[in-house]
């Protein structure tokens, strides 16, 4: 296994070197385009990790496979039970990490044919989050030698077979 890893990694180095020549226009710093220089945000994000920014608000509910309970009353159907007609079902207002959400489903012949949201948070919550991560983000197209040190690989969802043949797998193996 080690050997394979080494081989793969050396292949990467070669690839990296090849791409090193393919400089193109990468010197145009991607960050130039008017990103607010939120210099402090890195610190903010680091410092605030405990402060329940995103996921934690909804965390408790992970266990709620059973529940939905307390608020369940108002979840209503404006149905008419006949099988051929379509039925709409309106859910309760759920408090999510972005704000209140209410969904309406249309079911026809036992299948969901439409989902609409009666209430969802405005985009503002998201905008606020965007400011919370450290800009500028730089996507570099050229890979110099330093770029050989890649921590993770972002790629299309892999099957388990595909994974075993991927660079990510090599990285994971190398780290074990």
């Amino acid at each position: 296994m080690k050997r394979i890893t080494t081989w793969i990694l050396s292949t990467i180095t070669v690839v990296v070197l090849m791409f090193g020549y393919h400089t193109s226009t990468s010197s145009t710093l991607a960050s130039g385009a008017g990103n607010p220089p939120v210099i402090s945000s890195g610190t903010t994000a680091g410092g605030s990790s405990g402060s329940g920014t995103s996921g934690s608000g909804t965390s408790g509910s992970g266990t709620s496979g059973s529940s939905g309970s307390g608020s369940g009353s108002s979840g209503s159907t404006s149905s008419t039970s006949s099988a051929k007609k379509s039925t709409t079902a309106t859910g309760d207002v759920a408090q999510t990490q972005w704000g209140p959400v209410q969904v309406e489903l249309t079911v026809s012949g036992g299948k969901i044919t439409d989902v609409s949201v009666l209430q969802y948070p405005s985009g503002n919550g998201q905008d606020a989050q965007i400011n919370g991560y450290a800009l500028p983000v730089l996507i570099q197209e050229t890979l110099d030698q330093q770029s050989a040190s890649i921590d993770m690989v972002s790629g299309a969802t892999v099957t388990s077979v595909g994974y075993l043949q991927s660079l990510q797998s090599a990285l994971d193996q190398a780290g074990l």
Binding site: T11, V15, V137, L143, Q165
Partner: peptide, 8 residues
């Protein structure tokens, strides 16, 4: 899948 073309 053994190559990368960019780095973030």
């Amino acid at each position: 899948p053994l190559r990368t073309v960019a780095v973030v």
